[in-house]
């Protein structure tokens, strides 16, 4: 087409990304400010991490040979190593800390703000803004309470009045997966029924397990083991199944530790023992936060004491992230008619 006019460029936006106009940019910075302020007060310091990492860094969460769904990967020029756009901050923080362990003092309190990249099956989101905080090098329920309590304070500062935190326990999840299933296919079926909260399918599998009736009674109700601490205790009080009792004790400890951080914990924190963790790297208490009018979770977090083991070091850690793009979506009030 030499000699002709250059083709006019259509101002086309790729799917799954968006511009933030002055008002949106202001709101994002306000939300980030709430994280900065509330965690900053406790000595969390901000770090800025690269958008690109070696893919390996993000594989800590997966079954090793399986790529995280929807991750953007490409080759590094000259070396041919696989790179990826950041899909999750936590493995990056682990990489950062692991590379500097000799020079830093633990515990470390870090916070971060920035975009993450990943694609749903339908291509509906590609870039999402996130923010979060990690407490590295501190084991125990007090550290969990510090992070969780501060998440709640930050959400309040963001303007949320009615939100609910749902606590799950990765140790409890582990004992579920260690039940004496007949074979791997049954374990798989159990996992899928549990993740879908399909009580009926659970029933069929649990019925055949060589375990006592009392435990069976708990397992077939797993999907609905959601509620306040007292409600749930009432519901499972008859069970002496150890993993369950230990889990409830852990939560009890969390509430105690929260007293200093978050006086009204009882109001906004519930238990969800039927929850499947969003990340496979959680090793202790994990949580998801939901709010009225938001169809998806707005924040999540948990303890991950094994994530550093891929870097051949052992450091306990707990962290949380805020889904800022989800929080920024305009909430539409339903019209009554």
């Amino acid at each position: 087409m030499s000699g002709s006019q250059p083709a006019r460029l259509v101002p086309l936006l790729p799917g799954g990304v968006c511009d933030l106009l002055p008002e949106g940019a202001k709101r994002l910075r306000e939300l980030e400010g709430a994280i900065r302020q509330n965690f900053g007060r406790l000595g969390y310091q901000e770090v800025v991490l690269p958008t690109i990492e070696y893919l390996d860094t993000f594989l800590a969460d997966t079954q090793k040979d399986e790529l995280p769904a929807g991750i953007f990967g490409f080759l590094e020029p000259f070396t041919g190593r696989l790179l990826a756009l950041r899909q999750d901050f936590t493995p990056q923080i682990a990489r950062l800390v692991a590379s500097r362990l000799k020079f830093v003092q633990l515990p470390m309190r870090l916070l971060y703000l920035g975009p993450t990249f990943g694609q749903d099956g339908d291509g509906s989101r590609l870039e999402e803004h996130q923010g979060g905080a990690e407490l590295i090098g501190e084991a125990g329920i007090k550290a969990d309470a510090e992070v969780l309590g501060t998440v709640c304070l930050a959400l309040k500062a963001m303007g949320f009045e009615r939100f609910k935190v749902y606590i799950g326990d990765a140790v409890f999840v582990k004992s579920l997966l260690a039940l004496p299933f007949q074979d791997n296919a049954t374990r798989h079926a159990f996992c899928s029924a549990w993740r879908q909260r399909n009580l009926e399918a659970l029933d069929v599998i649990v019925e055949k397990l060589p375990i006592d009736q009392q435990t069976k009674g708990i397992l077939v109700n797993l999907p609905f083991l959601v509620g306040s601490r007292d409600a749930l205790k009432g519901r499972v009080s008859s069970s002496s199944w150890r993993p369950l009792q230990k889990s409830l004790q852990g939560v009890e400890g969390l509430f105690e530790a929260l007293e200093d951080v978050l006086p009204e914990a009882e109001k906004c924190i519930e238990l969800d023992l039927g929850a499947a963790p969003k990340h496979a790297y959680y090793t202790g208490l994990f949580f998801e936060v939901y709010a009225e009018g938001f169809p998806q979770l707005i924040a999540l977090g948990g303890r991950y004491d094994q994530l550093f083991s891929v870097f051949e070091t052992n450091v306990p850690a707990v962290g949380a992230g805020f889904k800022l793009s989800a929080i920024m979506k305009v909430r539409r009030e339903p019209v009554n008619f």
């Binding site: 609905f224 959601v226 939901y290 169809p295 998806q296």
Partner: peptide, 22 residues
């Protein structure tokens, strides 16, 4: 099927309807 947020936030109502349908 159920929305994941509603399942938690409206658990009591959903459980009641679920049991009735079952």
């Amino acid at each position: 099927v159920a929305n994941k947020a509603a399942f938690r936030m409206k658990k009591t109502e959903i459980e009641r309807l679920y049991l009735a349908l079952r």
